[in-house]
Design a binder for these strands. Structure first.
Ligand code: FES
Ligand code: FES
Lengths: 150, 150
DNA sequence: TTAGTAAAAGACCTTTTTATCTTTTATTAT
DNA sequence: ATAATAAAAGATAAAAAGGTCTTTTACTAA
């Protein structure tokens, strides 16, 4: 449903929203370590996110990544669409060309309400709002024990 | 969440359950055409499904694929686990090592009820029961090809 | 018994995804 | 200025997923 790349991007953008600021920029390495993601890969993803104005960066000493107020208004859907090129959340769970109640696959009526809910959340909440909620809930953002192989 | 391979396998096994029998075996080609899937690829998948006794086959004229009563008792989960090697339905939506209410990712409490529901269906219904339901509901079993309608 | 049929087996190929490495450019503190 | 720092850029590579092709084996009907 989501590529690893977009999962990395979502988690680390939320991480930035929670821990970085214009005054306290963060390096790829520190973020990559914090959420346990391969740092050269994350660096590539961040380049892309900077280019499309989802996150911001400055080079040099005390440089790093952070979010502007403008960045904070982006959504998780923006991240997914940028990184994956398309939003696969809306795809049919069993691979039909179109997820559609008029032409439902055998699990459509189980899948559809879930997709509506998660898509709604990803579209209607800004990164800032999302990050605030994450902080309040004490949700986990790091892939600490992620099995890279298995 | 599911690989294309397992989607193909699920749809075509349901198709077999609905349209084939010991008296009316079906060739890979006819099934591949019906659900619009690359036939050499489906052939490979079918080999695997035969080996682990999820579907059955005989060679030669009037040969082809079909389900025995034994086959009909298998579940969609059996197919997924055989083809994907693991059941990725249970994975965390955002990639955490473990989907777990004690260590929830930011969307865990939205995702979890859905996973419970779909996993339950795939585990507790036999292929036969599933296929009967599909038939009763008139659900669609074929892939992108049918988009030609419009 | 033989010709035709259809699956089994396995080698091979392509594309996409994931990941790493090296060089260059921008920034800043000294 | 310059040395240190950190991102940008881009080349490369490894792995996984998706897909094709050819040969062999088993079966059946004429
Ligand atoms: S048609 Fe398959 S999930 Fe909607
Ligand atoms: S922890 Fe992420 S979906 Fe359950």
């Amino acid at each position: 449903m989501l590529s690893r790349a977009s999962k990395y991007a979502i988690l680390s953008t939320l991480y930035l929203a929670e821990h970085a600021s214009k005054e306290k920029k963060m390096s790829v390495k520190s973020i990559a370590n914090s959420i346990n993601v391969p740092s050269p890969f994350l660096a590539k993803l961040f380049q892309q996110l900077v280019k499309c104005n989802i996150i911001s960066s400055t080079k040099g000493p005390n440089g790093g990544f952070f979010l502007t107020e403008d960045n904070e208004k982006k959504t998780v859907i923006d991240i997914i669409e940028e990184i994956d090129g398309t939003n696969k959340i809306d795809d049919c769970f069993l691979g039909l060309a179109k997820c559609d109640g008029n032409n439902p696959c055998p699990v459509h009526f189980i899948v559809e309400p879930f997709k509506k809910k998660i898509f709604g959340k990803f579209r209607d909440q800004t990164i800032k709002e999302f990050a605030n909620e994450v902080e309040a809930q004490g949700s986990v953002l790091f892939l600490s024990g992620l099995d890279k192989k298995k």
